[in-house]
């Protein structure tokens, strides 16, 4: 069997999850509508719902700290509008 030839094969692929949500003070119209609809469907214990975006990011790095910093940079430079959005990064 042929071994798959990988670029940067020495490095491990680290996987992260990035969640982006609107800041608390920014109106989230889509979240509000979904929340209202769920309540109308009988989910009366639903207290609050915010809608956001989710990214799965694979990075070719050995060091987890370095990889996480790269993802942080991706968030700050493109994925997130820091004026109105918050984000969290977690290791998968």
């Amino acid at each position: 069997m042929l071994k798959p030839l990988l670029l940067n094969s020495k490095k491990n692929k680290l996987k992260f999850a990035v969640t982006v949500t609107l800041k608390k003070d920014v109106l989230d119209p889509q979240g509000k509508v979904v929340q209202q609809t769920l309540r109308n469907m009988g989910m009366i214990t639903l207290k609050n719902l915010r809608q956001g975006k989710y990214f799965e990011v694979d990075v070719n790095e050995d060091n987890e700290e370095t990889a996480k910093n790269k993802v942080d940079e991706m968030c700050k430079k493109l994925l997130v509008n820091l004026i109105i959005e918050d984000f969290t990064i977690s290791k998968l």
């Binding site: 920014v26 109106l27 119209p29 509008n81 004026i83 109105i84």
Partner: peptide, 10 residues
């Protein structure tokens, strides 16, 4: 600078 949000009446 600044940002452009959804219109207030959505």
């Amino acid at each position: 600078k600044g940002t452009l949000l959804r219109n207030k009446n959505l």
